[in-house]
């Protein structure tokens, strides 16, 4: 089998005595959608922080596209094609929707140490930004102030920004967080399309979404991966049923 796009080996992170990431290993292959599920506080966001470079790991390695990126900064990782979205929406409210995406294009299009020409009038940046917005069905909102979008639209923008970085692999931290039925249907449909062009690591609580989208699912409980497999395998896994799905069904 070819080398995985993302290879995580024995990754660890503790906050004081609390081992939040406790020897996590998994692989993500090109064009795969790999979902990571787990109860609240399992350490999913912490894992995303470690993979994206927001948080330094205590030990273990992260390889991306054949390169050891364990010690790389967040900026170096995104330049190599590893982008993330945030569980807590973190778009730039004061800028237009278009500028939010255009800035991510700007980051990889020549020097940003240019001091005179108005950035918002740079058509090449805006064109690429618009393309990213179109992929999340936000192009008709391009000139709105980002802060004025509805919650669902903000979640869409969150994904568009990650796309606009030109990433090969998207780390999506609960893209459906806080969305209602209709909003989440839009986002799920959108991720179906993204799957065709991008490798995705998807953190999600919404089981329907996960089982509809994922090629493989890993289950994180108390910082450990207790199972990895196809959605069917994971659904049938006794430990998973006990630790996670059982609790879901009981609820």
């Amino acid at each position: 089998m070819s080398e995985p796009l993302l290879a995580v080996t024995d990754l660890r992170k503790s906050f004081g005595a609390l081992a939040v990431t406790d020897g996590v290993s998994f692989d993500v292959h090109g064009n795969e959608l790999h979902a990571i599920i787990g109860p609240n506080g399992a350490g999913k966001t912490t894992l995303i922080h470690q993979l994206s470079g927001n948080l330094a790991s205590d030990s273990g390695t992260v390889r991306f596209a054949g390169e050891d990126i364990t010690k790389h900064s967040m900026v170096d990782r995104v330049r190599r094609g590893l982008a993330r979205s945030f569980q807590i929406t973190s778009i730039l409210d004061g800028f237009t929707v278009l500028e939010n995406a255009a800035m991510a294009v700007q980051a990889r299009s020549g020097s940003s140490f240019r001091f005179l020409r108005p950035a918002s009038k740079e058509s090449p940046l805006n064109d690429e930004a618009r393309a990213a917005l179109a992929r999340v069905k936000l192009d008709d909102r391009a000139h709105r102030r980002a802060g004025s979008l509805s919650h669902g639209e903000k979640r869409q923008l969150e994904i568009a920004i990650a796309l606009a970085t030109g990433a090969k692999l998207l780390l999506l931290d609960e893209p459906l967080a806080g969305t209602g039925h209709e909003e989440s249907a839009v986002l799920v449909a959108l991720m179906q399309e993204l799957k065709l062009t991008h490798t995705i690591v998807l953190i999600e609580h919404d089981m329907d979404a996960v089982f509809a989208l994922a090629d493989r699912v890993s289950v994180l409980v108390y910082g450990r991966l207790i199972a990895t497999g196809t959605p069917e395998e994971v659904r049938a896994h006794p430990e998973v049923r006990a630790a996670y799905l059982g609790e879901e069904e009981a609820a």
Binding site: N54, V78, L92, F95, M103, Q106, S112
Partner: peptide, 19 residues
């Protein structure tokens, strides 16, 4: 400018800009 836009973005959310 490009430079100023990055500066303004950083003022609003430095983590986002790094991401």
């Amino acid at each position: 400018s490009r430079f100023g836009r990055v500066l303004r973005g950083t003022r609003e959310n430095p983590i986002r800009m790094q991401a």
